[in-house]
Amino acid sequence: MRADAKKNYDHVLSVARGVVSEHGADASMRDIARRAGVGLATLLRHFPTREALFDALLRENLDALTQKAVELETSAPPDEALVSWFREGVAFVLSYSGVVALMASAHEDPESALFVSCAAVHEAGARLLLRAQAEGTARPDMQGIDLFALMSALGWIGDQSAFAPRGDYLFDVIASAILTKPSGGEFKKGKKAKKAAK
């Protein structure tokens, strides 16, 4: 990519990130092009589909979430690693309204630009779950896909003004349901952080 084309691409992506932060996954491609000061055809040349745009926006976050799972596998007990990663996953899905539905559909569609990144995150989460199950600290009847269903539920809750204030509490309820014998380390850390914030 030529230097001027790369500059244009980065500018459009930066503007898109702002628009998507405001409007979530339903952000208008036409609005993004207008705010970026380019024609819709130029935007579509860079990002021919909505999924391609979101792949560019989310790939860095998804790759970081996958890498975090790898780090936690070797640096934390299985139950704490699982809950810590799950917490970061929930924070990620809360970053853009509607992103969960987009990722869920991409996971079922190998043709989607988001498919590879989403599949890598699913596999990373499933490995952490299996590790905790092998130790006997996570429910044996859960599957990796269930983690993402629960992330989706918490993401939806975070989008609801009536429920958002209870988001931390509901996270703890769900996390404690995932674990069978929590060591308490992850929850204690969370509670200390909450007390410190008060």
Rank of each mutant, 00 (worst) to 15 (best):
K6M: 06
Y9S: 06
Y9F: 07
H11V: 07
V12F: 00
R17L: 07
A25C: 12
D26Q: 13
M29F: 03
R30G: 00
I32W: 02
R35V: 12
A36S: 14
A41M: 00
A41F: 07
H46A: 07
T49L: 03
L53E: 03
L53V: 12
F54M: 11
L58D: 01
L58R: 04
D63K: 09
D63G: 05
D63A: 12
Q67I: 08
K68C: 04
A69E: 01
S75P: 09
P77E: 12
P77W: 05
P78Q: 06
E80D: 15
L82I: 13
V90N: 05
V90W: 00
A91N: 07
A91S: 15
A91P: 10
F92V: 14
Y96I: 15
S97Y: 05
G98W: 00
V99P: 04
A101N: 11
E111T: 15
L114R: 04
C118N: 07
H122L: 03
H122K: 04
L128S: 02
L130M: 08
A134S: 14
E135A: 07
A138L: 08
R139N: 04
R139W: 04
S152Y: 03
L154E: 01
G155M: 06
Q160I: 11
A162H: 01
L170I: 11
I174V: 13
A177K: 07
L179M: 08
P182V: 10
G185M: 03
K194R: 14
K198M: 08
